[in-house]
């Protein structure tokens, strides 16, 4: 039997989230004594997958179709699942992974577990730990089905190298029966996205206005980080909606989250709680963020942040 993993790539290169889900898949395949089979689309070079324990790669060529077509991707993966008689299917918690997961689960008559935060605690029946209530709690869930689809939270497992075979097999690009078509994609390619970032720098209403956002942007640039903001900041149009994080915005699961002039309201924290290390810079020592943070500075952002930027710049040189 095999564990099937969907590995995301961009312009023919595997994304970091793809390597993380491969690492996770390798550990599951070892525990259940299965082989690890990857499904990729338009991958140019499969050698990286060899380093992350993948035994076999079904590389689908989508030729005529430049876009992520959820139905066609799901049908193509489902085809491999059948061929390999897989009982465990893995996807990342990226926007596309979370889109694909439930659709693939119904097609494969599988149970679906989203927000999984660690390796299964048992394989018979498959039992996983998931976050719920927007990171305010966890639950342990078991499958009642033969087959299960797992979506792993970003940065929950990390990258772990292990030698694999990565034998490449051609695979078919299946058709779709629905009328849905992607006509264009509008993507910022020169900026790190919140979903992919190891570090996220976030600004709140304490920054007073959009004209001060160079502080956030400069700090993000020197750290190689993505930029984010609190909800009122995006509601007032200081920053684009795509930067709004929290319970009603984007989830953040970075290794480091730096919050500047953000009070730390419960709805904000709910969305960023699964970040590993949290730093707060706020001039009010009573701000609730200090209860949630690992490190903090009580001080004026307009004084502290420029210092931080120049010290970090010096350090990087």
């Amino acid at each position: 039997m095999s564990v099937v993993v969907y590995i995301e790539s961009q312009k023919g290169v595997v994304k970091k989230a793809g390597l993380e889900i491969a690492s996770f898949g390798r550990a599951i395949a070892d525990a259940s004594q299965d082989s690890l089979v990857a499904v990729t689309f338009n991958l140019e070079d499969t050698s990286t997958l060899k380093l992350y324990g993948v035994d076999k790669v079904y590389n689908v060529n989508t030729e005529e179709d430049n876009f992520f077509n959820v139905e066609r991707y799901a049908n193509s993966i489902q085809n491999v699942v059948l061929k390999e008689a897989a009982k465990i299917i893995l996807v990342s918690a990226s926007a596309d992974g979370r889109y694909l997961g439930p659709i693939l689960a119904v097609k494969s008559k599988a149970a679906y577990f989203s927000n999984v935060v660690a390796l299964p605690t048992s394989y018979d029946p498959l039992t996983v730990k998931r976050s719920c209530f927007t990171n305010k709690a966890f639950n342990e869930s078991t499958t009642n089905e033969e087959c299960s689809v797992i979506s792993l939270c970003s940065n929950a497992y990390g990258l772990k190298e292990k030698q694999g075979l990565a034998e490449v097999v051609e695979a078919s690009y299946e058709t779709s029966s629905t009328s849905l078509k992607v006509v264009s994609v509008d993507k910022v390619t020169d900026k790190i996205t919140i979903a992919d970032a190891d570090i996220v720098v976030s600004g709140g209403r304490g920054l007073k206005g959009p004209e001060n956002w160079h502080l956030i942007e400069d700090l993000a640039t020197v750290l190689g980080a993505a930029t984010a903001c609190s909800k009122p900041v995006s509601d007032m149009g200081w920053r684009p909606h795509s930067e709004h994080v929290g319970q009603t915005g984007k989830p953040v699961a970075s290794n480091l989250y730096i919050a500047i002039g953000v009070s730390g309201a419960i709805q904000h924290l709910a969305g960023i709680n699964s970040s590993k290390v949290k730093v707060v810079i706020n001039n009010d020592p009573e701000a609730p963020f200090f209860k949630a943070a690992d490190y903090g500075i009580v001080g004026d952002a307009f004084e502290v942040v420029p210092q931080l930027i120049s010290k970090l710049k010096a350090l990087k040189q």
């Binding site: 876009f67 992520f68 990226s94 926007a95 596309d96 849905l180 078509k181 992607v182 006509v183 264009s184 994609v185 509008d186 993507k187 910022v188 390619t189 900026k191 996205t193 919140i194 979903a195 992919d196 795509s242």
Partner: peptide, 9 residues
């Protein structure tokens, strides 16, 4: 989508 948006019909 991550880092942008997609238009569909």
């Amino acid at each position: 989508i991550d880092g942008g948006k997609e238009t569909l019909i």
